[in-house]
């Protein structure tokens, strides 16, 4: 299993297709939740995840042996009121967890996470020894 592979799996591909060329009335769901993007440069990695409607107090991020885990629960209740009926329920809710192997060593004590507008952003600074180094070439 390659957790870093992009758009692996037919369902994810279908979902992307329907997001891009939406012709239907349905919102596709994937088994994978939340969806994650990983960005990086020479100094750090940025992991972002779309987790709308979660209470940040119910989010748990942990790092064990180079594996990053995002865990949480989306508590979603019907609006308060009498005789409330539900016509449509497409939004994800309930517990979720995902674990990824990090592509390089990070400074564990310097990891920071921010939850804003339904998007979780985790910044992972690279460990000094894992930063790319350029090797000078000597003409000889």
């Amino acid at each position: 299993m390659n957790p870093w592979g992009s758009l692996t799996g037919l369902r994810d591909l279908q979902r992307e297709m329907s997001r891009l060329f939406d012709g239907g009335m349905t919102v596709e769901r994937t088994a994978r939740f939340p969806l994650v993007n990983v960005l990086s440069d020479a100094d750090e990695a940025l992991v972002t995840a779309e987790i709308p409607g979660v209470d940040p107090a119910n989010l748990e991020i942990s790092l064990t042996k180079g594996q990053l885990t995002i865990r949480g629960t989306i508590k979603d209740a019907a609006p308060a009121g009498e005789d409330m009926i539900c016509h449509r329920k497409e939004r994800a809710s309930g517990p979720f967890a995902r674990t990824f192997k990090l592509p390089f060593e990070v400074e564990e004590e310097k990891i920071s996470a921010k939850y804003e507008k339904g998007v979780l952003a985790i910044t992972l600074p690279r460990a000094e020894k894992s930063k790319p180094r350029s090797i000078p070439v000597i003409a000889g």
């Binding site: 997001r19 939406d22 779309e50 609006p79 009121g81 005789d83 009926i85 449509r88 939004r91 994800a92």
Partner: peptide, 27 residues
């Protein structure tokens, strides 16, 4: 920009209709 359909929940009671849409990252 690609255009996406947000997932939605729709509730109704005699008092009104409630619609919730997942739109992460939208200010």
């Amino acid at each position: 920009h690609p255009v996406f359909l947000p997932a939605a929940d729709i509730y109704e009671s005699p008092a009104g209709v409630w619609i919730r849409c997942d739109m992460p990252g939208v200010a």
